[in-house]
Design a protein around this nucleic acid. Sequence first.
DNA 1: ATGGTCGGGGACCGA
Length: 257
Amino acid sequence: MKIASWNVNSLKVRLEHVLEWLDYEQPDILALQETKTLDENFPVDTINEAGYQVVFSGQKTYNGVAILSKEKATDIITDVPKLDDPQRRILGATINGVRVLCLYVVNGQEVDSDKYAYKLEWLEKVTDYIKVDHKQHQNYVVLGDFNICHTDADVHDPVAWKDRIFCSAAERTALQTILDLGFSDTYRQFEQASDSWSWWDYRGGNYNRNIGLRIDLILASKSLAEHCQRSIIDPEPRSWERPSDHAPVVATFEIEQ
DNA sequence: ATGGTCGGGGACCGA
């Protein structure tokens, strides 16, 4: 079972990229973030014609999440308890017995800003939900754009980024708290090349200079993680014309479907 | 060599 995640930075602009990528990668599940698409405008027919079903939670201009899957998604959630949030950043679904939680974590702008406080509160409420929901679903994947660099290995310049947004102690602790519920960062289960990033700033030719961050993660529950055979970042679509600033990430699990 | 959205200029958000 191949499970992927991609922040597409507007599905309208990136639809052809998504279709091209689905065609060659053939994931069973693809979680999208930053679709920036109202539900009534979601390209359901085009996705269906590509062989995928889809569920989504969108809004105008900002945020928006979706889950594409070859098999049917059930038990859809778009919100978690105690988080009354108009921002569409959360989408949970069960597919082939695997609970999938797609997250577009709050950016946070700057440490100690109002948005930073919202980021930490948002993470706390989502973590509370995962803790409860995981008890009912052994095979569980939390994936998406986390907007957190877990360790200095996930940052091109840890000195410059020290204690800044994405790298603050409170953000890293929040991510560790999710991992401590029994999740594994599948990417780090395998030996990886150094300087491997999932996001590169559009500015300054940063992709060609390989200056970036690893902020797009696929976390798997213990029962799934022990069957993870591969977890990679596919940088290729970042080199395509008019790309998303994020690359897709992919994890493969050897499990009964 | 800053992109996307909304809207029709430029502000806002992003990471």
